[in-house]
Amino acid sequence: MEPAIRVRDLRKTFRVAERDAGLGASVRSLVRRRYREVAAVAGVSFDVAPGEVVGFLGPNGAGKTTTLKMLSGLLHPTGGEVSVLGHVPARREKAYLGRITLVMGNRNQLQWDIPALDSFELNRAVYRIPEPEFRRARDELVELLEIGDLVRKPVRTLSLGERMKAEVAAALLHRPQVLFLDEPTIGLDIGAQKRLRGFVAEYTRRHGASVLLTSHYMADVQALCQRVVVIDKGQVLFDGGLRQLTARFSPHQTITVQLAEPGTDLSAFGAVVEAGEGRVSIQVPKAETSAVAGRLLAAHAVTDLTIEDPPIEDVIEQAFSAGRTA
């Protein structure tokens, strides 16, 4: 199957002016400017299949937003190839722009002073959505996002979470087939994050849309993404499933036991990471987990035992560190 998004050796280099601190350097820069080439994206390749939801992860400055901007046609690549739904994004053809959407969590697209319903109407005109289709899409989005009451209030009176839901609804009225979501849940409370996540999952399920999602909230990634692409310094560090990511970057698992006799020393079984009130957590190499658990059960009176992978945040952090030291 033809991928919805196809990226090959994508590069973006910015030319930035720089100077030393101080008055002298400031005067010198008037006469002679010094520039430095900064490679924000340095040879990124990946595919996203139709209907696939992919997490695009990386620390600040890794090149995530620059890549999303190239994919949505806002930035011209310095090199490499990009194809989204068969279009070259940098050409910004109307036929292309009508099939995608870009939601940036920190940017506002709705008209501030009027109700969101009027902004929806504006999008109907901009995307030339036939009236019956528009009504169907609007009603569906309003229902899924539970914003029936909110869309009639001026946008400036909405809370951040309410506004973001209205923003997302506006961005999806034209039923885009590819969604670029850049930190869509930033600044939202846990409940709002959860509802928005549920909505994105439901939207992609119903409409078979592909999603490329950047987020610093791993809960977003875990809830939505079958696959993650991890980048740092403009290069791909990892591309695969969350489980594989954990297997590759975190060779340990955590065994937590509740002991009948508190105070027992378990350091012989693995590295103790937490202990107290008879509850002890030890970290062991993944390959030895079953054996260690068996020995523990045989040697001590254990009333409860759990085995867990490390939190995904730790795994990602581990991946970034590995990338930096590689």
């Binding site: 008209q111 002073d113 009027i114 902004s119 109407e121 504006l122 005109a125 901009v126 030339r128 001026p154």
Partner: peptide
């Protein structure tokens, strides 16, 4: 037509916004 509709809706938005102010 598409563009005429954009003009009508945007102009309507402006009237609403500016009447508030």
């Amino acid at each position: 037509s598409g563009l005429a509709s954009v003009y009508r809706v945007v102009a309507g938005t402006a009237v609403q916004t500016q009447l508030q102010y």
